[in-house]
């Protein structure tokens, strides 16, 4: 009887704590988005983190996020380091893989960064100006991520 009561008491005490933990997790994601938006230069780890956030399982470790994306069929080009500056082509490649874009015939065939940019421009995710080599700011990255989320049907 005492055991049961203890168990129920522990469960009652821990429930709000678990809920709060969830709340902190959501705040951590929002804090991360705001940190990225304020950054003058976006890094590869920022983009990977934001895409991992779409799956609701973003980790602070870069390799874990890369593994999560790989398990979802989104792969990074070889030799890409977490602190490398994020270029438009790299982000377009991630976005095109996430959305399964087929707007560019050439991207369907070659899967290169250049054609991924074309596919993203054609689907309205990126602006016409610039090239795949442009380095992006944090604000630009968050803007593209928002458009990707809208395109994916997450706009509520």
């Amino acid at each position: 009887m005492i055991k049961k009561t203890t168990f129920v008491l522990i469960a009652l005490i821990s429930l709000p704590l678990i809920a709060q933990e969830g709340g902190f997790q959501s705040v951590a994601d929002i804090e991360f988005v705001n940190q990225v938006a304020d950054a003058p230069m976006a890094r590869v780890k920022d983009a990977v983190g934001l895409f991992a956030m779409f799956y609701g399982n973003r980790k602070s470790d870069f390799q874990n996020n890369v593994a999560l994306l790989r398990s979802k069929g989104i792969s990074l080009p070889e030799g890409m380091q977490e602190n490398d500056p994020l270029r438009r082509g790299m982000l377009a490649l991630l976005a095109a893989q996430y959305l399964h874009l087929g707007d560019s015939f050439m991207y369907r065939i070659f899967h290169t960064k250049r054609h991924a940019v074309t596919a993203c421009v054609a689907s309205g995710i990126m602006e016409v100006s610039g090239s795949e080599w442009d380095m992006l700011s944090g604000g630009e990255l968050v803007e593209v991520i928002r458009k990707v989320a809208e395109k994916a049907g997450g706009d509520r």
């Binding site: 959501s26 994601d29 956030m53 928002r146 989320a149 809208e150 997450g154 706009d155 509520r156």
Partner: peptide, 19 residues
């Protein structure tokens, strides 16, 4: 956050903050 939104009521006017 991603896939989220908030509706604010300001004296009868509604503001929806998108994701």
């Amino acid at each position: 956050g991603a896939g989220s939104s908030v509706v604010l009521d300001i004296d009868g006017s509604k503001i929806t903050v998108r994701q």
